[in-house]
Every structure is written in structure tokens, then in C-alpha cells.
Amino acid sequence: MIRKIVYGVFILIIIAAIAIFMSNYKFGVDKMDVGKYYLDNTVPQTGAANVVTSVTLFYRGFDTLGEVTVLFTAALGVAVLYFMGENKRKQKLQESNFVTKIGTRVVFPFILLTGAYIFMHGHLTPGGGFQGGALIATGFLLLYLAYEETSIDRKKFYLVEGLGGLTYVIIGLLGFFMKGSFLANVLPNGTLFDLLSGGIMLPIYIGVGLKVGSELSNIIDDLMCEVKCEEAGGEE
């Protein structure tokens, strides 16, 4: 009992500290310093309509490269952890019903199409590589849930993942050799609201979308294959 009171006081102190800090920043009031620069200069400097995309890929492109690396490391860690110690227990999987099977067959191509649309129009509309990739991975999750015998070809997914990452790094190095700084804009900006505009953002987001989609699909394959492989006797 005394422990719970001590913990409660501890939580209250943390919350009060954040609240006192937040009382300097009133809700709904304009407090932009650096945001104003991005809003004013995005269209002339980058040619993209979505300011959030231009901040993540153009002004802070190196951060996003680090984020992609973190995602890659996490996928690697999940794969290593799941194949480390195997403990074969029999687990019975339920057969999915008729509606799920037929519905998946109808919906799956449209999910892939929507994902590709989202990551290709990342510089014009809300969305981008991460959201489109996650949608593609959700499509593969649906496929795994509906059909028991699904298993993706890991080699091809690794290839797509590697090519996506390589696109990002090669565009960065091109900027380094042609313009003198890593991830500098080497492509023309184009006209606003065209698909082929925004300089280096379109190829980078296509690469990131393919990479994130195949990476998250690999994580799902690790998780789901493990459930199924226990039934099949523990082999990959």
C-alpha cells in the first residue's frame, strides 16, 4: 500500500513538472520561429506542395536516413531474436472463413495500389513513403491471415529492401559530388502540383516506400511464420 502511494506521488511530480514547463506555451497561439522559414521558402526552394514532406526529406534529409537505418536495425533484430532459440510446441491454427478468403482476393490489389499512390504523391498530398509502406505491409498481413499456406519469397523482399535503401544513399552521394553537400537537390524542381516535381523527393520517397513496405512485411513474415512453423515442425 505504501508503495502505491509513493509511486502515485512520483507520477504526480513528473506530470506537474511537464505541466509547469508547458504553461509557457499557450495553446493555439502562433509560436513559430523556424516553421515560418520553412513555410515561406518551401515552394521557391523545393517545388513541393506538402511542407511536412519537404521538412522531412529536404531540410532534414539526413535525419530521415537515420530513421530508415533504425527501422532496418529493428527488422534485423526481430529476425535474429525469432530464430535464436526454438521451442517446438504444437499449435493449432483456425481455418479462416469463406468471406475472409474471397474478400482478401478482391481487396489485396487495391491495397497495394493505394499504398503505391500514397508514396508516389507524397510531395503533393498528405502521406509519403512511411505511410504507403505501412499500408503495403498491412495488405500482406491480410494475405497471411486469410490463406494459411502464404509465405513470401524472402530473397526478393531483401533485394527490394536493399535497392530502396541504396537509392537513398546514391542520391545523397550524387548531391555530394555534384553540388558539394550530402543530399543536395540535383534534380530540377519542376512546376508546382505536377507529379514530376519536387526535385529529389519523388525518387527518395519511392525508395523509402518500397524499403519500408518490404521491411515491415518481413517483420510480419517473421511473426506469422513462427506461428505456422511451430505447427509444421519448426523448419523455415
Partner: peptide, 14 residues
Amino acid sequence: DPVPQALTLTSIVI
């Protein structure tokens, strides 16, 4: 302000 949204985008994926 676009900067907090860009930061949150990174945070969700990680």
C-alpha cells in the same frame, strides 16, 4: 507549424 508534425512522423515509425 510543420516542424512538430515532421518530428512526430519520425517518432511514430521508430
